[in-house]
Design a protein around this nucleic acid. Structure first.
Lengths: 245, 245
DNA sequence: CGAGCAGTTGACTGGGATCAAGCTGTGTGG
DNA sequence: CCACACAGCTTGATCCCAGTCAACTGCTCG
């Protein structure tokens, strides 16, 4: 019977995976119990404190990862130290540049982070034998491309005030996606400190600070403890993302 | 015999595909003769003059395309008309956002463009039955993501002079990839007019013009006819991409 | 208590935007 | 053939937004 077969299969799923939240949204969701068992033989979990480097540019990445907890910032550097954050990744995203020896971005823990890591070659072999896995990763890449392009518009054409509003909106939407059509106030922790926000927006920390103050004085947001933000009306914040001229 | 079999197979490739240059670098290269024949039943070629719109944001894309000739710009708009180019595509790139009803970018012909187009559902069916095709498209998506992130660094952290140098360097490298380690002068046509360059760099046309003049006076580039550029020493141009402070 | 990090605020500066004029090539019609 | 219009580009004068430099607050940790 079908349900019996399902139960039998799921009983073969490694215990550590069965209790793993990343399995549902993450790439492991498309793997068969056998594949999960194979992968599980080589996985290792690591935890990092906020600020630690997970992967540096040009370094050969021996392992890929799922993000189980926390926020990872991907950034790029110029020779003289100027920095730009080019992506943020949240659980249960897959992290790592497939089909390439080395990464050209730096990955840092923006918050405390836990990763479930696997060796390059194991993942690449699984990708070869599982079109579903490749499809899943392909979709994630397209999603990241959409996000990067949206962000290029922000970086290239928005004012400082609009940039800060856009960042807050991005976090508000990402932290609680199901609140998108919810009308009440939204409250969340910023995963980045001011200097990271500045690196994300192509601004300085002073400008970020001033624009946050401005949004606060305009009543669009409220601030607690520098890191906790309350958005009383998400639509007002959304409007601030592109009307500041 | 193997070679005989190959010849027999290749004789089944549709004539129009056999003479198509995009087949080698493009996605069609991974398709079997049978798949090519199937696809070929639904393909249509279209040509567009520079400036024409190929696809508008929010519009449902019924067809995907290979770019056979020309340069396509992908851009995004804000409500008040501010524009940002978020990607450039050259032959033989594949064009279209897979697995999504509608595109969130506008595609315009930056130069005269010829496309080989196919219906959405045919491509998506081929992707489902051919892991090689999905892999090829996945790799292109990752390449575009790398490019987008490189450009985010330029948009967020470079000065106007560095931005313009970076753009010229990008074109010089893309137009003639095999000239990468070639020492002599490089000469090429800019595929974009000044206003497009400005939209690509997040600048105004006046600033673009001034910075081009500055590079010309510094001897980094020479200009003929506003559109033709000569780079006597690619390394000097490369240096100008991130040392302008 | 002091050291040090994160954030805010103020005064001043400067790079790129804005506004405006002029230049150059190209096509069009008399 | 010239006169004209127009689009693409350049150059100049001025302005303003965000960067820079600096001082200060608040918090945490030793």
């Amino acid at each position: 019977m079908d349900t019996a077969r399902k139960n039998e299969q799921s009983s073969e799923i490694p215990a550590i995976c069965r209790s793993c939240e990343a399995r549902h949204g993450g790439i492991c969701g498309v793997l068969s119990p056998d594949q999960l068992k194979k992968l599980n033989r080589y996985t290792k979990q690591y935890s990092y404190e906020s600020g630690n480097e997970l992967l540096s540019a040009g370094e050969e990445a021996h392992r890929y990862s799922n993000i189980l907890r926390g926020v990872v910032k991907l950034s790029k550097l110029l020779a003289d130290g100027r920095q730009q954050i080019v992506g943020l990744q949240f659980a249960p995203d897959f992290m790592g540049r497939l089909f390439r020896e080395e990464s050209d971005v730096i990955a840092d823990a923006a918050t405390d982070v836990t990763l479930c890591t696997f060796p390059r070659n194991v993942i690449e072999e699984l990708v070869r034998e599982s079109p579903e896995l490749e499809h899943k990763l392909h979709e994630q890449a397209l999603k990241e491309l959409d996000e990067a392009r949206e962000w290029m518009l922000t970086l290239g054409r928005k004012t400082a005030g609009e940039k800060v509003a856009s960042f807050l909106y991005l976090i508000a939407a990402n932290v609680d996606p199901e609140l998108a059509d919810h009308d009440g106030p939204i409250r969340f922790e910023l995963p980045l400190k001011r200097s990271d926000i500045a690196d994300f927006l192509g601004l300085t920390i002073e400008t970020v600070s001033r624009q946050i103050t401005k949004l606060r004085k305009a009543g669009v947001i409220q601030i607690e403890n520098n890191r906790t933000v309350i958005v009383p009306d998400l639509e007002r914040l959304e409007a601030a993302c592109e009307t500041d001229r």
